[in-house]
């Protein structure tokens, strides 16, 4: 474990917590007897969260952590895997099933056909992988899928008029975690002999590059202290 990877995992964890906080806010808001102004805004405007991206992430974790009960690595590793699995599936459940949260989900805007991401990633994983075994192919699939899983969310943000802070922070933290992982891979390449994993590295690089324009608009909105807005 190195500082870059720990920082990456913590950033990833924070992105999940921000999303859970946002869902909690929507839930608690609608529970109020009086429609406070914030509640009114929350319930009227869409949450800006893409269910498609959340479903893709649930699939990423489900296919990445197949070995959670067979290969024990560390308590930390197992606990983090359980947190990511539990949170991603419960977020999908909330947006799909929860009577209040699903009202804030704008399915007319979240129209990205994520099937068009799943199939190519699966085919690519069948062709390019480190070992042609069931677990290895699914693990490679999860890497390719995670690289593109954010696309529905980014497209939804372009369509969402006013991106609220929590959603913007969620996407920022999600992009930052993989950027920190790239530093972790560089560090491990120089400190551990034979540590070479091109598939992981290239997927991680592509994933981070997809956030490039978001990072640009995110930082410029922070610098100019204006509302985050992605050009359509």
């Amino acid at each position: 474990m190195n500082i870059f990877r720990l920082a990456g995992d913590m950033t990833h964890l924070m992105s999940v917590l921000v999303l859970l906080l946002k869902i909690h806010t929507i839930k608690s808001c609608a529970g109020k007897s009086y429609p406070c102004s914030l509640c009114f805004i929350l319930l009227e405007s869409s949450s800006g969260i893409s269910l498609k991206t959340q479903e893709l992430y649930a699939l990423v974790f489900a296919t990445r952590y197949l070995d959670i009960f067979t290969d024990f690595i560390s308590v930390y590793n197992t606990i983090m895997k359980l947190i990511f699995l539990g949170s991603s599936f419960s977020i999908v459940w909330y947006i799909r099933r929860h009577k209040i949260v699903r009202r804030s989900y704008d399915k007319d805007q979240d129209t990205f056909r994520h099937f068009f991401l799943v199939l190519p990633c699966l085919l690519l994983a069948l062709i390019i992988n480190e070992k042609f075994t069931f677990k290895e192919v699914l693990w490679t699939f999860s890497l390719y899928l995670e690289a593109v899983a954010i696309l529905p969310q980014l497209i939804l943000l372009q369509r969402t008029r006013n991106i609220d802070n929590l959603t913007g922070q969620y996407v920022f933290l999600l992009g930052a975690y993989r950027a920190l992982y790239i530093l972790n891979w560089i560090y491990r390449y120089f400190t551990e002999p034979h540590y070479v994993h091109w598939i992981t590295w290239i997927s991680g690089l592509v994933q981070t590059l997809l956030y490039a324009d978001f990072f640009y608009y995110y930082f410029s909105s922070l610098k100019n202290n204006v509302k985050l807005k992605l050009p359509a």
Partner: peptide
Amino acid sequence: IPSDESKDEL
């Protein structure tokens, strides 16, 4: 069962 080291990451 020690897994290969590339799987020790999340």
